[in-house]
C-alpha cells in the first residue's frame, strides 16, 4: 500500500460535501421512497442535516478525524430528528471515536472506523439483516470493503467495492417486508419498495468511492 493510499481530513470533508450534494440532489427521490412506506420526510431530513453539517464544518474546520466526525455526528443528532438523525449521528460519532485523533486513515483504519459506526447504529436501532433498513446497505458495504482489503485492494478499490455492495444491498431491500422503523407498520404492504435509509446509505458510499477514486 502506497503512503498516498489514505484519506485525509480534506478527503473526509470532500466526502461529506459529496454526500451533502447527493442527498440534496436526490431529496425528492428519497422523500418519494419515504412516501411509499413511511412519512415523506427522509429527503428533507437528510438534506437539512447535511446542510447543517457542512455549515458547521465550514465554520470551524477540524484537524483530526475524531474532532471532525464528532462535529458531524452531533450536528446530525441535533438537526435531523426522526430515525435517521440518531442513527446517522451515531454512525459518525462512533466512526470518529474509533478513527481517533489522526489526520488521515488508510483503508483498514477507515473500514474499522466505519464498522464501529455500524455497531453504533445497531446498538441504537437494533436492526438485523433483512429488516429493510439502512443496515441492509451498510453491512454488505463494510463486508465487501473488508474482503477487498484482505485481498490487497487499494483504498479506491475497497471503497468502490463498498459502493457496489451498498447499491446491491439497497436494491435487495425492495422485496423485503419491513420489521423495523416506520415501514414495519405497513406489514406486507412494505414489500415492493426500496428502503429510503438504505438508499441514502448507498449515496454515502457512492460519495466515498468518488472522493477516494484514484
Amino acid at each position: 500500500m502506497s503512503t498516498t493510499d489514505t484519506i485525509t481530513i480534506e478527503g473526509f470533508t470532500a466526502w461529506l460535501a459529496a454526500f451533502r450534494d447527493r442527498v440534496t440532489e436526490h431529496r425528492s427521490y428519497l422523500t418519494e421512497l419515504d412516501s411509499a412506506i413511511g412519512d415523506a420526510d427522509h429527503g428533507a431530513n437528510m438534506a437539512r442535516g447535511m446542510a447543517a453539517v457542512m455549515e458547521k464544518v465550514g465554520a470551524s474546520p477540524a484537524t483530526t478525524a475524531d474532532e471532525l466526525f464528532k462535529t458531524v455526528g452531533m450536528t446530525l443528532v441535533t438537526s435531523v430528528g426522526g430515525a435517521s438523525g440518531p442513527l446517522y449521528g451515531t454512525l459518525f460519532l462512533r466512526l470518529g471515536m474509533t478513527a481517533g485523533a489522526v489526520a488521515e486513515c488508510d483503508a483498514a483504519a477507515l473500514s474499522s472506523a466505519l464498522r464501529a459506526g455500524l455497531d453504533g447504529v445497531v446498538a441504537r436501532g437494533k436492526a438485523e439483516a433483512g429488516d429493510k433498513t439502512m443496515f441492509d446497505a451498510m453491512a454488505p458495504a463494510l463486508d465487501a470493503m473488508d474482503a477487498a482489503i484482505a485481498s490487497g485492494a487499494s483504498l479506491a478499490e475497497a471503497t468502490a467495492a463498498a459502493r457496489d455492495a451498498a447499491a446491491a444491498g439497497r436494491d435487495a431491500t425492495e422485496p423485503l417486508v419491513a420489521r423495523k422503523g416506520r415501514a414495519s407498520y405497513l406489514g406486507e404492504r412494505s414489500a415492493g419498495h426500496l428502503d429510503p435509509g438504505a438508499t441514502s446509505t448507498a449515496l454515502l458510499f457512492d460519495a466515498l468511492a468518488e472522493v477516494t477514486a484514484s
Binding site: 431530513n45 435531523v80 430528528g81 426522526g82 438523525g85 440518531p86
Partner: peptide, 8 residues
Amino acid sequence: EVFTSPTP
C-alpha cells in the same frame, strides 16, 4: 419538524 421527531 413536520412528522419528524424533535432532537435530543
